[in-house]
Design a protein around this nucleic acid. Structure first.
Lengths: 355, 355
DNA sequence: CTGTTAGCGCCTTCAT
DNA sequence: ATGAAGGCGCTAACAG
């Protein structure tokens, strides 16, 4: 009746792992044989319990546990056309806001039984496109991209695939499918107006060269110009932004002979670097120099003085992206294809001057 | 001859994406028909080019490009038993060293044509085990775990699967398969000896509660005790470690009436927080208070004063893990099943006192 | 160099 | 409530 030899100790020796010949896999059929049922009944017991008698389910579960059955999603996905896999491409992971977003994305996906296939584009559109091809060959149920500027092939492939797509961190009037983010130009303008209101007059910028940072800085410049003000110095730094680059940025500006009364940084990490450089030089912040960050990283509230910044729900971008995707995957309609998560100016010490 | 209607514009309308009914997929067969060849020849042209006439390859590539063929790895993997997928479980992503490791892992994997399936355990062994089941059902070619303490089921399942496994961030005499990390107890001891050498006498600790941090702190305590010294205060903080927690840690120690002359932190982030708290209180570092970090995060060299710490090749752990895995997947034997990446004390300003 | 046959492990469809 | 047949898309193994 039971022609399976139950594994005594249950495994191959450790130092044999991965040597090419894997133990022949335990399949639904094996469970079925052991339980004295047909494979399809076992499948149902495992995935559609209410199509099967409780008693049978019990038998199946026992048998599965005994032989250590692990379903093969490749095979499953091949028939169902559902992979329970969501792929995401981020520009970078270490030292960036994207880690938070990925964490949020992952958590929400995991909570709904989806897994995350992660890739890193290193801020290259070409790389992104190449990665996408590999990704799509795994038949993901959905994809999360960063930003709204992509290699043309990206949009085409994604549409051909017909799966839901979220473009995160930015919004666009013409998303590939769904966009979850905020308007970076509004941020630039808001920061400009806020700082002008505070009475700052001589603006400098330490700005990353990534797309979205540049968008914010340009909008800042434009708004300043509307008030008759030009940036007196602008220092660009390549991603990833680090504290060291922030220090160097302020250093370069000051050594260049410029004397800004406020420096606008494209991330809190840069702002923190600038803050430290100011401290090292004995420049009082904010009295002699204001500093503005972006992102509201967790440390920003706890530096001394605390960094004024722009709050963005980094984690929320990820969780919302996940929710949108899951909704569409499960056939629900979305109210909006474009979700603006907004932002919020956070005044802290580094810009708190005058009245 | 060619009975395929070439798609004019190549896609479904955007707002139709993901509504359940995907465009029927384009398969190898379609390419074959268009190229006037058999499916297997197309397969070979794409994956084993040198088994096929150059002329034929060209025909195949053309045909594939024309209809936008994307291979289906689920189907491919089902037959070959190779998924080109490596899975990793990390305790957490945002705000941690693990992001660096994951980035290194991903880069190295991508360079060899593997993709990364990422999961987050939130420091829970039970979660790790559950995640693993889901992961294994995708038939990964290899797995990277964090740490060496796992739910018993983890080892069992992994061995049953017979795939290579790396346990990262720690080393063990009895790894499941491969270990890539370093000995945290040696770190604790080394830090203790170094600080004793510098002449510090009244030690306090701000330490995360995660496994490896605790291991280091215990070894530090033990080493101190061998020199007749006890920690005068110890403050524990839950992961994720943040700058704020570092500040609070020092705050709590000082408000508790303790007067350490050095505070040992289980991460640079905590150390940075302590440094800021000291600065805010006007406590001179290192003269009145030494501060020791861990990890050598990129900011540590650039704070003011710069943070003394322990360098670990965070990224390298990831790249080496990837290399070991790939080697085993491809059937090569490893010289060592346990790779100690070591660590290095980095003296900077926050402990530079006396002679 | 190219093609035929068969089957990976599972689930959909159609019976019973 | 359970089962039998067939096929998802691809590639191994064996021809020729």
């Amino acid at each position: 009746m039971n022609d399976l030899s139950l594994p005594e100790s249950s495994a191959a020796p450790a130092d044999d792992a991965g040597a090419g010949e894997r133990p022949k896999s335990i399949t639904l059929k094996d469970v079925a044989r052991l339980a004295g049922l047909s494979p399809i009944t076992v499948s149902r017991a495992l995935h559609n319990p209410r199509m099967v008698k409780p008693e049978t389910i019990e038998k199946v579960k026992q048998a599965a546990a005994v032989i250590g059955y692990i379903p093969n999603l490749l095979a499953g996905g091949l028939t169902t056309k559902r992979s329970r896999l969501v792929a995401s491409i981020v520009p970078q992971l270490s030292n960036s806001m994207f880690a938070e977003t990925v964490q949020g994305l992952n958590d929400e996906l995991a909570a709904h039984g989806y897994q995350l296939l992660l890739s890193v584009s290193s801020y290259s559109r070409a790389t992104e496109e190449e990665l996408l091809t590999g990704i799509l060959s795994r038949q993901p149920d959905g994809v999360v991209l960063t930003g709204i500027n992509h290699h043309p092939g990206v949009r085409k492939k994604l549409l051909a695939m017909g799966i839901p797509v979220v473009e995160a961190w930015d919004i666009s009037p013409t998303p590939i499918d769904i966009a979850v983010g905020f308007n970076h130009e509004r941020v630039g303008e808001a920061v400009a107006r806020y700082l002008l209101d505070k009475g700052f007059k001589r603006f400098a910028s330490v700005c990353g060269t990534d797309e979205r940072a540049v968008l914010r800085r340009r909008a800042l410049e434009a708004e300043l110009r509307r008030h008759g003000i030009e940036l007196i110095a602008s220092h660009e730094v390549p991603p990833p932004t680090t504290l060291a680059l922030g220090r160097q940025g302020l250093y370069a500006i000051l050594e260049g002979g410029h004397r800004p009364d406020v420096v606008v940084c494209s991330s809190d990490v840069l702002a923190h670097g600038a803050l430290i450089e100011a401290g090292a030089r004995g420049i009082a912040v904010p009295d002699r120099l204001g500093i503005m960050g972006f992102g509201d990283f967790d440390f920003a509230a706890h530096t001394h003085p605390a960094i004024s910044t722009v709050y963005v729900d980094k984690r929320g971008v990820g969780t919302r992206a996940a929710r949108c995707l899951i909704a569409k995957i499960e056939g629900r309609r979305l109210d909006d294809q474009v979700i603006d998560v907004g932002f919020k100016l956070v005044e802290r010490d580094t810009t708190r001057i005058g009245g």
